[in-house]
Amino acid sequence: MRRVLILGSTGSIGTQALDVVRANPRRFEVVGLAAGTDSETLAAQAAEFGVESTALGVVEAEQLVRDIEADVVLNGITGSVGLGPTLAALEVGRTLALANKESLIVGGDLVTALARPGQIVPVDSEHSAIAQALRAGESSEVRRLVLTASGGPFRGRTRASLAEVTPAEALAHPTWDMGRVVTTNSATLVNKGLEVIEAHLLFGVPYSEIDVVVHPQSIVHSMVEFVDGSTIAQASPPDMRLPISLGLDWPNRVAGVGRPLDWTTATAWTFEPLDDEAFPAVRLAKRVGRAGATYPAVFNAANEEAVDAFHEGRLGFTGILDIIERVVEAHEPPDALTREALVDAEAWARRTADKAIAAASAS
Score class of each variant (00 low, 15 high):
V4P: 01
T318S: 12
L114V: 07
V30I: 01
T188K: 05
L87D: 03
T294C: 04
R26Y: 09
M240E: 03
P117N: 01
I105D: 02
E52I: 02
R135I: 01
A347E: 12
E40S: 13
E340D: 15
R27F: 05
A266K: 14
V58D: 08
G118E: 01
V20G: 11
I324F: 10
R180W: 00
P117W: 03
L261D: 04
R339V: 15
A129C: 01
S103V: 00
G152K: 04
R135D: 01
L64M: 10
L64Q: 08
E325V: 09
V227R: 08
E126G: 00
N300R: 07
L98M: 04
A89Y: 11
I6D: 08
T148P: 01
E91T: 15
L64H: 10
A349W: 12
N252C: 09
V165P: 11
L33T: 09
L74Y: 14
A89Q: 11
D322S: 15
D71N: 12
L74G: 02
D262Y: 12
V20F: 11
T183A: 05
D239T: 01
L134G: 00
V111I: 02
D249V: 00
L114W: 04
R22A: 12
E91V: 11
S186W: 09
P122R: 03
A46H: 06
S222P: 05
S150G: 02
P216W: 02
G258D: 10
E48G: 03
Q217D: 05
A43G: 06
A187M: 10
M223D: 03
V4M: 13
T188D: 09
R287I: 02
